[in-house]
Design a protein around this nucleic acid. Sequence first.
DNA 1: ACCATATAGTCAACTTGATTGACCACATTA
DNA 2: TAATGTGGTCAATCAAGTTGACTATATGGT
Lengths: 157, 157
Amino acid sequence: MNHPVFSEFDLTSLLSLSFSALIDELHDRLSELGFGDIRPAHGFMFKHIIPNGATGIELAEHLGITKQAVSKMVDFLEKSGYVIRQTHPNDKRGKIIVLTERGWLVMKAKEEIIAEIEQRWIDNIGAERMQMLKEDLTKLVYEVNEGNLSSRSKPVW
Amino acid sequence: MNHPVFSEFDLTSLLSLSFSALIDELHDRLSELGFGDIRPAHGFMFKHIIPNGATGIELAEHLGITKQAVSKMVDFLEKSGYVIRQTHPNDKRGKIIVLTERGWLVMKAKEEIIAEIEQRWIDNIGAERMQMLKEDLTKLVYEVNEGNLSSRSKPVW
DNA sequence: ACCATATAGTCAACTTGATTGACCACATTA
DNA sequence: TAATGTGGTCAATCAAGTTGACTATATGGT
């Protein structure tokens, strides 16, 4: 199939479409591996639980949602066996959320799948261009946020 | 401020962050212009209403949601004065959803804001790199979807 | 040491944007 | 023209978030 190279999409659509294409494939593959109950936001949470656990409030800030919403997500993930709540060593009010073995398995699977997709893209556009792509996107992320990154991001994985 | 150029983020995060940075700024600016009731999904709907209107089912397919959900969105947008439902000329069951004057104003504002942001990025990374970025993202969108584009995309604007 | 205030987490009620199912009016085709 | 298909809406429900109220524990000023 011969596709047009010059964009019929504007930048917004391109970013949106490439992102959701990536995420959709990732979650399809995770489903096949038996992780069908994992949603994109869970992955982003896991990322901040690594490597030594995190409190609910820390996760809430990272995810940009309320601590109550985090509490519910953790309820679900704990029931499904991906994380557990441990009592905080220094603060009896607090709890630390850590990954279980199953949680680590998802993270590992995710890494492998993303690496594989990324490799396909490298085969397609070349390693140099992929490097440029990443550099440029990194710059853009910093530029648009004008320095105060992660303040309002609603990220995934 | 001197930022690292080589990515501390993986591709998923980069795409997610750059996309949401873009969308956040866009909607902040639209809010300032008095379009605070417009959500990202509305913009994507508008895009497919242009230029000659669309039926609810067409929009549902484009947005990847049910026709009932579209119907609700249209209810809202009609009440807010962005679109109207016209009776379909050939099919008395159907309706065509078209933009009102106010609807066109939002689209125009959106174009200008995106163009301005894009220009900032061009100033930052250069026009050539921007062109490459778009080309590469376009390829990636096609590659990941393996030809059947827009079948499952959950896009915005 | 004590009290006032702040903080981590949970419970409950509500909101929002989607879903599924049922239905009506009109179209299409055999 | 009867049988089936299609566009749209209504209603009930679901999922994932919100706000508000509360408990238990920490912390800091006097």
